[in-house]
Simulated scan of single mutants.
Amino acid sequence: MSSQHSPSEHDVKAATEQWLSNVVIGLNLCPFAAKPQRNGQILTLVCESSSDEVVMEVLCDELKKLDETPVSELETTMVVTPNHFTDFDKYNQFLDVADMLIDQYGWRGTYQVASFHPDYCFADAEPDCDSNLTNRSPYPVFHLIREESIEKALRHYGGDPEDIPDNNVERVCTLSDQQKRHLFPYLFSAV
């Protein structure tokens, strides 16, 4: 997202939460997100730093907070970095650091990191392919997820969980240009 000045923390949080409501939940890209959102169990934390080390510390602190907070109070956390990782390749490389943190603290199997970025591009897709919209957020996001919550949600899911990614791609690929501009205004603001 290019601009002359950095967006305010409030604006970043509002844009991220609007994306969560309109795209992730509105298009049902994650069939498990609506309930925690309704219950106020999703934390959106804006990390304004442009330092790898600070982002790593914030991710570690937020994983510890998830570890210490009952799921009834905090289901999941989205760490948003509006001033860092604007380059998707650098963001993607940093995901290895996030995974390293999970291993270092013995959280493998307890937490995982889902990735979202304005320029998200799947390895097997061209950058302008609509399938990438499933993971395109207004700002770089590290979504910290409790694996136990995913497993619990999957037990109550009515469909085949293996179909979710393909269903999501089909959903975003059938959006009209007008719908895309409405749902992803940050992708069209420079056009």
Rank of each mutant, 00 (worst) to 15 (best):
P140C: 04
L63G: 05
N83P: 02
I145D: 11
N135T: 07
E48Y: 05
T44M: 10
S149G: 15
A123C: 09
R108Y: 11
D61M: 10
C121E: 07
S49E: 05
V80K: 02
L74C: 08
K90R: 15
Q93Y: 10
H84Y: 01
E62D: 08
L95K: 09
L133G: 04
R108P: 03
V79A: 03
D130R: 12
F85E: 01
S49A: 13
S72T: 14
A98C: 14
C60R: 10
D61G: 07
Q104D: 09
D99M: 12
W107Y: 15
D96T: 14
V54G: 01
V141E: 00
V54L: 06
D99I: 08
D128T: 15
Q93E: 13
N135G: 06
F94Y: 13
A123D: 15
H117W: 06
D99H: 15
L101C: 10
F85A: 00
F85R: 00
Q93M: 13
V113I: 15
V141M: 09
D128A: 14
D61N: 13
C121F: 04
Y91K: 00
V46G: 02
T81H: 01
F142P: 01
C129V: 07
P127E: 07
D67M: 06
Q112T: 13
E57K: 11
S51A: 09
E57F: 06
T134G: 07
V113E: 06
E126P: 02
V141N: 00
Q104E: 10
E53P: 01
E148D: 14
G106V: 05
E57D: 14
V46R: 01
F122P: 03
E73L: 15
Y105I: 02
N92M: 12
T86K: 08
D87H: 13
H84I: 00
Y105H: 15
F88W: 03
P70D: 15
T76A: 03
T134Q: 07
